[in-house]
Computed example of a mutant assay.
Amino acid sequence: MNIGIYIYQNAEVLDFSGPFEVFSTANRFTGPDPAFNVFLVAEDTCPVQARGGYSINPHYGFSDHPHIDVLIVVGGIHMEELSKTNVIDWVAATSEKAELVASVCTGAFILAQAGLLNGLEVTTHWEDIDALRGSYADLTVVESRRWVDTGKVVSSGGISAGIDMSLHLVSRLVGAELAERTARQMEFEWRKNSL
């Protein structure tokens, strides 16, 4: 299963590193054939400067990535992304073909801008709840939840909540035992909440 994580300039480091670690750690327990092929996608393959000056090399750009089964859109300083037609169009088109779409933190704004959250319950970083409500009136923005699973779309709160959500995705896609083993290997106290 191909897990594509969308990153961009000033993306929040743990928003993409946390989910990447969850899926790559889960692969340690799935035998010789990994359950997940996890990779980072950006507009192109040039280095991306994430928050704090953290430089990261995406594996693929929009034009050369493999099919994405699960698209994860991360948060960060996201306002510029909302005005990029090519980004919003790519997110919408990729989501249409994906089995699951997820957001971490303010990545929910990008999914909302792409029209993927209409009429759904969603969550985001606590600091951005009011802004998400004010910007997209057709969403039901949920507070005090680590993640919200509505079926095809899963959204999570800020930063570290993306790890909880990703463990939930492992549980959904493969099984609870693998998610538990992954959390234990990461020495992470998995906070489970869902609909």
Rank of each mutant, 00 (worst) to 15 (best):
N2C: 10
I3Y: 00
G4M: 09
G4K: 04
I5S: 09
I7C: 03
Y8Q: 07
Q9K: 14
E12K: 09
D15Y: 01
D15C: 07
S17Y: 02
P19N: 08
P19Q: 04
F20E: 01
E21D: 13
E21T: 03
F23C: 01
S24G: 06
S24A: 04
S24F: 07
T30D: 07
G31E: 08
G31L: 09
P32A: 10
F36P: 00
N37L: 10
F39Y: 14
L40I: 01
L40S: 06
A42Q: 04
E43K: 14
D44L: 09
D44I: 03
P47E: 04
P47G: 08
R51H: 05
G52P: 11
S55F: 07
I56T: 09
P58D: 02
H59Q: 13
G61I: 05
G61D: 09
G61W: 05
D64W: 14
H65C: 10
P66C: 06
H67S: 14
I68A: 03
I68L: 06
D69I: 08
V70G: 00
V73L: 06
V73I: 12
V73N: 06
V74P: 00
G75R: 03
G76A: 11
E80G: 09
S83E: 12
V87A: 00
V87H: 01
D89R: 10
W90D: 06
V91F: 04
A93F: 10
K97V: 13
K97M: 05
A98L: 06
V101N: 03
V101K: 08
A102T: 06
C105M: 14
C105Y: 03
T106K: 05
G107C: 07
L111P: 01
L111F: 08
L116F: 02
L117S: 07
L120I: 10
E121C: 15
T123P: 07
T123G: 08
T123W: 04
T123C: 07
T124F: 02
H125S: 15
W126C: 10
W126Y: 15
E127N: 14
D128I: 01
I129T: 15
I129W: 13
D130H: 14
A131M: 14
R133M: 12
G134F: 12
G134W: 01
S135Y: 06
Y136H: 03
Y136N: 03
A137E: 12
D138G: 14
D138N: 14
D138I: 04
S144H: 15
S144C: 12
R145F: 09
R145M: 13
R146I: 13
W147N: 14
V148G: 08
D149M: 11
G151P: 08
K152A: 13
V154K: 01
S156G: 07
G157F: 02
A161W: 03
G162N: 05
D164W: 00
D164N: 13
D164L: 08
S166I: 00
L169M: 13
L169W: 02
A176W: 05
E177H: 09
E177D: 12
L178A: 09
A179M: 04
A179K: 00
R181Q: 15
T182C: 05
A183E: 00
R184E: 11
Q185S: 12
M186R: 02
F188E: 01
E189W: 07
E189D: 12
W190D: 00
K192M: 13
S194F: 05
